[in-house]
């Protein structure tokens, strides 16, 4: 059975849900599950990982890890990998994970498999399924190196409680300062409590049919009544028009998402957009144009004026939520 090392990312003082997802998956695959958590004042969070299957949790805690910075985190994680000697390393393909994972793999002189949505194990070898062309196709990929480094797309696996031994070990990181060249001066995070689009369970997205930036409030209102796991998104047309920031964009030049529910309001459904949200579990389309391609992918379609449908929908969802 392979030893698996899971990197558990911390954001805003909490372990991310994606970290619990990959810990759960590691546990389900069998074998020894180790986890590593890096940050400042994160030691108290470590035991949470035991609940989802971590047998051993390595904690790298210090002021130099207060803000995420590629090189120190790569060094610390590589140091823990050296202690664990795992055959597989899992990371989350979050914004941070996408920066960290290839750098870590390169430091370990191995290849990595990015942004996987499914995993199977054949002996010690991982076979990973990953989307390419923003989801227009999938590949099954194997890594030849040791360890096999795999980043996993958030929302790909369920969080499952299955207790691991949960022994916590503090690790004093020995950083090679000569390699730390880039210095993070400041980090500005919007106060928003909304989850990132790639991790949200519900996305209410708007396109050209929203007619202007002021109308996105309607989408925010609907996302708000859906609850804290919901956020808003936008099509490229809405972003290029300057109505929404690029960080909201869903599709081939934006984010690829797979929420439980994707509501497309006033989005026609260009191939680049459909590629970016086609794996959503349930798709709702609201559009005035009955010929809009989005309707060919939608589980529920309403041909109507979104300005009439959305407020009523918000009201109804609120009622159901009680």
């Amino acid at each position: 059975m392979p030893g698996i090392l899971v990197y558990a990312e911390v954001q805003k003082g909490e372990i991310k849900k994606g970290a619990f997802e990959i810990t759960s998956k590691a546990k389900a695959l069998g074998g020894q599950v180790s986890a590593c958590i890096i940050g400042k004042g994160v030691e108290g969070l470590a035991s949470q990982l035991a609940k989802y299957g971590a047998d051993k949790i390595y904690v790298v805690d210090g002021p130099e890890f207060e803000k995420y910075s590629t090189e120190p985190f790569v060094q610390a994680l590589a140091q823990v990998a050296g202690m664990v000697n795992p055959s597989i390393i899992f990371t989350s393909a979050s914004a941070q994970g996408k920066d960290l994972t290839p750098a870590l793999a390169a430091r370990l002189k191995v290849g990595s498999i990015s942004d996987c949505v499914d995993l199977t194990l054949n002996g010690d070898k991982v076979a990973a399924k990953r989307p390419i062309y923003a989801g227009k196709a999938y590949t099954m990929v194997e890594a030849t190196g040791n360890p096999q480094v795999v980043s996993v797309r958030p929302n790909s696996f369920a969080v499952v409680e299955a207790a691991g031994a949960g022994a916590v070990e503090k690790v004093a990181a020995t950083l090679d300062a000569s390699k730390i060249k880039a210095v993070v001066k400041s980090v500005e995070i919007a106060a928003s409590e909304e989850p990132d689009q790639t991790e949200a369970e519900i996305i209410v997205s708007g396109g050209r049919g929203m007619k202007g930036p002021e109308n996105f409030k309607m989408l925010e209102d609907l996302a708000h009544v859906f609850g804290p796991t919901a956020t808003t998104g936008a099509s490229r047309a809405a972003v290029d028009a300057g109505w929404r920031d690029h960080s909201y964009q869903v599709g081939q030049t934006g984010k690829t998402v797979s929420p439980n529910l994707y509501v497309a309001a006033g989005i026609s459904g260009a191939i680049q957009h459909l590629a970016g949200m086609g794996t959503s579990k349930v798709i709702v389309a609201i559009n005035k144009d009955p010929e809009a391609p989005i309707f060919t992918k939608a589980d529920y379609g309403i041909v109507d004026d979104l300005f009439k449908v959305l407020p009523k929908l918000t009201e109804e969802v609120k009622k159901i939520k009680g």
Binding site: V110, S112, I113, P131, A137, M140, F295, G301, I302
Partner: peptide
């Protein structure tokens, strides 16, 4: 060079059927 990752197969996503119009 030798690749560190090998593509074993490539597939299309399952076709998504249009659902119901309300």
């Amino acid at each position: 060079v030798e690749p560190m990752t090998i593509i074993k197969s490539m597939t299309l996503p399952p076709a998504r059927q249009a659902g119901k119009k309300i």
